[in-house]
Nucleic acid binder design. Structure first.
Lengths: 191, 191
DNA sequence: TAGTATAGTGAACATTTGTTCACTCGTCAA
DNA sequence: TTGACGAGTGAACAAATGTTCACTATACTA
């Protein structure tokens, strides 16, 4: 068993209610009848880094709570936990989203970036109000339409390039409106 | 302002400590000096669905707390909030991960699936112990090596196909070991 | 001007909270 | 058998919790 007994029910509680149960609530989760029993249970979870206490002494999820085990690379063989601690501790959400207020999600519909591995149906995390760097994938306004393109510079001119030979580069004549910079691509397989 | 005043500091508290602050802790966050002030502040947040109470009457994050605004498709123009409520309410983590115990993350190193939009450097969410369906992307053991391939059937034979013309299909002679089924691809741009 | 909401203060209260203490019961080793 | 030990019970307690009440100041309307 990878996680200690009784812990999964506490983790489920947190996942459903977005808060940790109190010690009396853990009584019902574990079946114990004394708060002292769950108190010492929690002590063990704290030593296993499944739970911790914050600065105020309140119980919060620990390092190993939101465990998302990272393994090595695909070709390299299965379990080589090199950079294991990387996402393990921060969790998917914090890893992908830095500025939540400015981050939006949208779905790709065209094939203009298919050679960059961005395919129709993929979801994009984009950040508004950020200044794009050379080579960034951006969402730009062209002829009152929004398109997905590479942001590139030719000399001191800014051009928009598709990752698909079918489309030719766009050289904006008047002003260029960058709506957002793509920060991540997420493809979910509906299996 | 999209979120009401004072709320962002509460959201930050939750993001950092993975729990909501108590009413006295909100005093320090907001600058108020009376718990009654923050109590009524929270009442307003509850009406805005930023916070809620669970069955036990405890304060927990509400529907609009982990707000990740979803917009329409890229080509279709900017703000057409069609399926807005979709991820909005569940959050990235719950959307992508169903069986946390069995889900692992690993990095792609080869180019064998490049025509499926899976490129070296991408991160994969994979689920172990699941039976693959026709057309799933799987991690299979071939010659004591783990590779990323399409899981396909030719007649009643199972074959492994790469999404790259450079590689020819693998027809496993003895037994075929499927280590995991890929459930999502995540590409993060380090901008 | 007087009157009335609105938003804040400060204090109070019953509950719930984490934590501790003394005790019981079975198990295993000496 | 005796003794030590680990794991659970049940009760207790101070501190922290959510909620309510009475009061004040400020802004706005009639």
């Amino acid at each position: 068993m990878t996680t200690p007994k009784y812990f999964s029910s506490i983790a489920r509680f947190y996942r459903e209610r977005k808060r940790l149960p109190s010690y009396r609530e853990m009584l019902k989760l574990t079946g114990f009848r004394s708060t002292n029993a769950v108190y010492r249970l929690v002590e063990r979870f704290r030593q296993a880094d499944l739970l911790t206490k914050d600065a105020a002494g309140k119980l919060i999820p620990g390092k190993r709570f939101r465990e998302l085990r990272i393994l090595g690379t695909v070709e390299a063989g299965w379990p080589s936990p090199a950079e294991e601690e990387l996402i393990d501790t921060i969790g998917l959400e914090d890893w992908l989203i830095h500025n939540r207020e400015a981050t939006y999600m949208l779905k790709v519909s065209g094939d203009s970036m298919i050679d960059a591995g961005i395919r129709p149906g993929d979801m994009l995390l984009v950040e508004r109000g950020r200044t794009p760097k050379e080579g960034d994938v951006v969402i730009a306004e062209v002829d009152q339409q929004w398109t997905l393109k590479y942001f590139q510079k030719r000399g001191r001119q800014t051009i928009l390039v598709a990752a698909n030979k079918k489309y030719s580069p766009i050289i904006p004549q008047d002003e260029l409106n960058i709506a957002a910079v793509v920060t991540a691509v997420i493809r979910k397989y509906h299996t």
